[in-house]
Each structure stands twice: as structure tokens, then as C-alpha cells.
């Protein structure tokens, strides 16, 4: 039986853009970036939820909201039925022990003045994960867990390669024995051959420690490989969410289709990448009315420019936010 670990309801977050002096004088209203526009999803114990989308779509913002780096303007995030932004819980640091995050940039996510050993030891001792006497042994165990040699403990971050740094970041996150890991573009900055090592490690650790993982990435092949379920985000909204295999083999939303076909295949004979999107991602400063995707959509109809489509369950598919999903599926 599965149990819901994380539940996100109607999450919205706007960033105010600071107004220039000219704007103030002309009394132009301040602009807002709509980073998240009503995102709802849930995560089950032990599963990997992939989150894909292009840069600026809000996927990293979502990840950062979950670990309370940002506070949403609207909506709720519930971890085991506890609202994580509730007044009596928002400063509860025990939450940080149970939900951890790894960051994209392996060159900035570690304090350059602390050795790998100090970084891991700090996490262990602040949260009193072990009695002080046992901390060195536990630190050694964690290095072992992420396949780093024991002499790594004495080294500063600049002495490691990108892949090794991400292993240290994983060890730091695992030090507090979390249930949920948020991996924000964990391997995007790494070389292909090293990516595979880190992804393997993550999958193995998940199995061993029964972790729930949110894998945020823009590389569809990787997301497909690691995820049980996948959410596709476009301009702060989920446009499609469902079982990984069915979503990838049979995407329903025109944006998911385009995203999939845009990823170049390593097989030179596989030239199926036929769907080309017109235009670019609109600025989140200026989200189009109706379905945000309609300006690039090859299937748009009249009501797409008017009504915002809601996520709805479609037979043989996942949940899709598209007015014309059935027709598109029929004609495919």
C-alpha cells in the first residue's frame, strides 16, 4: 500500500520586479513574474516524481518552495498532512531533517572554505544524528555510501571534480536521514559519463533507503530513466502529469509532444523529431491569456485563447491540461 508523503495544492508564487524610477514617476503598476501559477501534485512514498520543463518554467521555484527557501503567495504544501508554512510549524527545523535538497551547481553548493569532512560532520552534529563520539565513524560511512574514498574528508571542494562534489552534496543531504530528496538539476552540469555514475548512485540509494525523490531536470531522457511519474510544467502550470512510461511513449499535451520530439536521438537513423515549435517561451512577466501555450501551439482553437484549461484525467493517459487533448489523440 502506498502512502502520500507530500501534497501540494494550488501553489502560486509571484516575484515582484523592482520598479525603475521612470515607472514610479509615470505611476506604472509594478510588474510581477508569475513563477508558479497554481500547481497541484502529490508524491507517494518511495516513488520518483520527475519534473520537466524549459528554463524559467518554474520547476526550480517549485523545488525551492518545497524546502521552504521560498514562501508561496497562495496554496498549500502538506508534508504528511502537516502544512509546512503553518504558523506553529514554519520554523520547525525537524522538517529539514525529513526533506532535503541537492542543488544544480556543484561549484557553488559547497562552502569553499570547509573540507568535505567538515561539511558532512556539521550536518551530523547540528542535528545530533549520533552521539559526538560516533560522528567520525558515521561520516566515514556516508563517504563510503556515496563512493568517495576516505581521504576525501580532508580535502576542500576545489580539489574535487564536479561529479565528486555532487556526491558530497548527496552525502550531506543523506546525513540527516531524510525521507524525501529534492534533486534540482542534480546532474545537468556534469559530463555525460559522470552523469550516469551519479544517476546510478541515486537510484541505488533510493532503493536501499526507501527514499522519495523529486527529480527536477530539463533532460527528458534522464527524467524518463529515473522517474515513476512525470509532471510537465509550462510557464508555472502543470500541463500534463502521469505515469512515466505512458507519458513518454504517448504524450497527450502538444507541449509534451514537442518537448519529446525536440530531444535529439542518438540514433542517426531516427529522424522522427518532426514537431518543431514556433517561437519561444513567452516571458513569465507576461503570461498569455487562456492556455499559456496557445501562442506556440499548432492545434490551437478559439477557446484556447480565452479559457485556461484545467488538468483532467483522460482515458488511457494521465492528467492533461488541454481543451483538445481527445481530438489531438484521435488524429495522431
Amino acid at each position: 500500500m502506498t502512502s502520500t508523503v507530500m501534497e501540494i495544492k494550488d501553489l502560486a508564487l509571484e516575484f515582484k520586479v523592482s520598479r525603475s524610477i521612470v515607472d514610479v514617476i509615470r505611476r506604472r503598476p509594478g510588474k510581477v513574474v508569475r513563477a508558479l501559477n497554481g500547481v497541484s501534485l502529490h508524491m507517494e512514498k518511495g516513488e520518483t516524481l520527475g519534473v520537466v520543463g524549459e528554463s524559467g518554467c518554474g520547476k526550480s521555484t517549485l523545488a525551492r518552495c518545497i524546502v521552504r527557501l521560498y514562501e508561496p503567495n497562495r496554496g498549500k504544501i502538506k508534508f504528511r498532512n502537516q502544512d509546512i508554512f503553518a504558523a506553529d510549524f514554519r520554523n520547525d527545523r525537524s522538517y529539514n531533517k525529513r526533506v532535503q535538497m541537492m542543488f544544480q551547481d556543484p561549484y557553488s553548493s559547497l562552502n569553499p572554505r570547509m573540507t568535505a569532512g567538515q561539511i558532512i560532520t556539521e550536518a551530523l552534529s547540528v542535528h545530533e544524528m549520533r552521539p559526538p563520539a560516533e560522528i567520525p565513524a558515521r561520516m566515514a560511512e556516508l563517504l563510503d555510501l556515496v563512493r568517495l574514498s576516505q581521504d576525501a574528508a580532508e580535502k576542500l571542494p576545489h580539489e574535487f571534480s564536479g561529479g565528486q562534489r555532487q556526491r558530497i552534496a548527496i552525502a550531506r543531504a543523506l546525513a540527516v536521514e531524510p525521507e524525501v530528496l529534492i534533486a534540482d538539476e542534480l546532474v545537468s552540469a556534469l559530463d555525460v559519463s559522470v552523469q550516469a555514475q551519479v544517476v546510478n548512485l541515486l537510484l541505488e540509494l533510493q532503493e536501499r533507503l526507501n527514499l522519495t525523490i523529486m527529480f527536477v531536470a530539463h533532460d527528458l531522457r534522464l527524467v524518463r530513466h529515473v522517474s515513476n511519474r512525470v509532471a510537465v510544467i509550462y510557464l508555472g502550470r502543470i500541463v500534463e502529469i502521469g505515469d512515466s512510461e505512458s507519458l513518454f511513449s504517448n504524450p497527450a499535451h502538444p507541449y509534451s509532444q514537442a518537448l519529446l520530439s525536440a530531444a535529439p536521438s542518438v540514433d542517426p537513423d531516427d529522424t522522427s523529431g518532426a514537431i518543431r515549435l514556433e517561437g519561444e517561451l513567452p516571458s513569465p512577466l507576461n503570461v498569455p491569456p487562456g492556455c499559456a501555450f496557445h501562442v506556440r501551439c499548432p492545434y490551437k482553437t478559439e477557446n484556447c485563447t480565452r479559457d485556461i484549461p484545467v488538468l483532467r484525467l483522460i482515458e488511457n493517459m494521465g492528467e492533461v491540461a488541454c481543451h483538445n487533448a481527445e481530438e489531438i489523440a484521435k488524429n495522431a
Partner: peptide, 16 residues
């Protein structure tokens, strides 16, 4: 190492 046409959630081939 490219996760294409490999069974999902299996260990990827990786260069050590």
C-alpha cells in the same frame, strides 16, 4: 551512458 532505449530505473552503463 545515454539513457535511451534502456529499461527505466535500471543501472545505466557508466564509465568509471
Amino acid at each position: 551512458s545515454v539513457p535511451q532505449d534502456v529499461p527505466p530505473r535500471t543501472q545505466l552503463y557508466s564509465v568509471p
